[in-house]
Amino acid sequence: MVTIKELTREEYWLPGNSSCPGCPAALGLRMLGKALEGKFVLVVPASCTTVIQGIYPATPSRVPLLNIAFAASASAASGLRAALRIRGLKVPVVVWAGDGGTADIGLQALSGAAERNEDILYICYDNEAYQNTGIQRSGATPYGAWTTTTPLGKREHKKDVPMIVAAHGVPYVATASIAYPLDFVEKVRKAASKSGFRYIHLHAPCPVGWRFPPSKTVEVGRLAVETGMWILYEIEDGVLRLTGRSRVLLDPSKRKPIEEYLRAQGRFSHLDERDVEELKRYVEARWRELKKLLEERGGCLR
């Protein structure tokens, strides 16, 4: 287990950047920097991080960073990896993309890179909407959530990208949450120690887009996990296991009611009973699937 105290005091994502107060992406970038102690290169598609990293000539990034167009991060990282390999450099190439750049417009490049088993670490920080352009629905927006393009609430469930990536048979897939930074750091380090295509899906509650006070970013993230709305797991070589807080939540009685998570956010304030029931049904079904997978097949996906 990683402990707080052993994390480096060094900051690789410097303060005084243009992230919003309480921004989960900025927190995630800080943790990523500490996890790998600055020894990696970043590829960033269009996203909030394009803005957070600042305007020429200054950036908070203390790691080399290549910006790239929205749909192109996994493929640009593939090319960068190839070039660094030629130069004999083993430094990890890490994609840091939002859910729009991952679940939607970048999914083709992501799938291509995963299928080719490119030697890159792809991290999706999932704030569950196009927050940078002002809170529009993405494929990763959950059922019922208000966004500016779903003013009455989204009618479809969240696209399950980590499982889509896992279906490519890549060496490592994990989910993480900004509320559990040490779990995230551990997963980043484990991923970095492997080669081939590695994927981490980081749940990242956005105060602006989800309509909660900026002081609650971590609390909301924690509630997502504790209510079972977001599940922490990792899949190593095709075998899934629950991790961290989620390990004890297979038993439904251990999970907090999802209303606690929904009530904490303005984006769900309009939900009626039927919507809440639908979300409950969805969450229960996901857990049942996982339980079956773990108990009947030892977590073996294929």
Binding site: V43, L66, I68, A69, A71, A72, S73, A74, S75, A76, A77, S78, G79, L80, R81, A82, A83, L84, R87, Q108, A109, G112
Partner: peptide, 12 residues
Amino acid sequence: SAMAACIGAAAG
């Protein structure tokens, strides 16, 4: 992706 990969490679 072909051009994106070339961009990544040339940047590297």
